[in-house]
Design a protein around this nucleic acid. Structure first.
Length: 194
DNA sequence: GGTAAGATCAGC
DNA sequence: CTGATCTTACCA
């Protein structure tokens, strides 16, 4: 994209940490597809394995969640509510089942492709302001489960254009969970209402 | 083998 | 607020 600074990949070490550290630092990073689609991450939630009753990985490894127990810097993509895909960045040491759910991005490149992937005319803000909306807009489904977002082995990666995370992110309880409702492990950019 | 719940979304 | 829609996980 002309005029846009080069997008640098993140280091594996960025993801090899506690998701409660990684999550706020993912704000303002960029989710990139190899077909040109890109969006700036503005809302995330941390999920902390055996320490977190709301995490898919709380009760150990299953066929569905095994990616989240794998090495950091990969994508855990899961299907829910009979129709939606959502994606997480796997974090921490291998075997912990830690990750960060990507909940919203602001479209920044190939917005028309994102709009058509979402099925028609909508405001730019509605294109990817939810965890299942962003996967639909970015063309991410179960075939991307386990993709390496550092090495970009399947055409999906998380990169930086040099923009720092917000100095004062808005923090609060996570959305749509029934257990551990009080854990304040959701972060978003201060200037977004959603 | 049966079943309840789900890290959601769109439309009313 | 409710319906859609179906996989997964857990229990028997």
């Amino acid at each position: 994209m002309p005029g846009m600074p080069a997008l640098q990949p993140l280091l594996r070490a960025f993801f090899e940490r506690d998701p409660r550290e990684v999550a706020p630092e993912l704000l303002n990073k960029i989710l990139v597809r190899d077909d040109g689609r890109a969006g700036r991450i503005i809302e995330v939630e941390a999920y902390c394995g055996a320490d977190d009753p709301a995490a898919h990985t709380f009760r150990g490894m299953t066929k569905r969640n095994h990616t989240m127990f794998g090495p950091a810097g990969h994508l855990y993509v899961y299907f829910t509510y009979g129709m939606h895909w959502c994606c997480n960045t796997v974090c921490g040491p291998e075997g912990e089942g830690w990750g960060v759910l990507l909940r919203a991005v602001v479209p920044i490149a190939d917005i028309e492709r994102m709009r058509s992937a979402r099925g028609g005319a909508r405001s730019d803000r509605e294109l990817a302001n939810g965890p299942a909306k962003l996967t639909q807009a970015m063309g991410i489904d179960g075939s991307f489960d386990g993709a390496d977002i550092v090495l970009d082995d399947r055409g999906v990666s998380v990169r930086t254009d040099g923009t720092l995370p917000p100095a004062q992110p808005r923090m609060g309880p996570r959305v749509g969970i029934s257990r551990a409702k009080d854990f304040p492990w959701r972060w978003r950019n201060p200037d977004v209402t959603r």
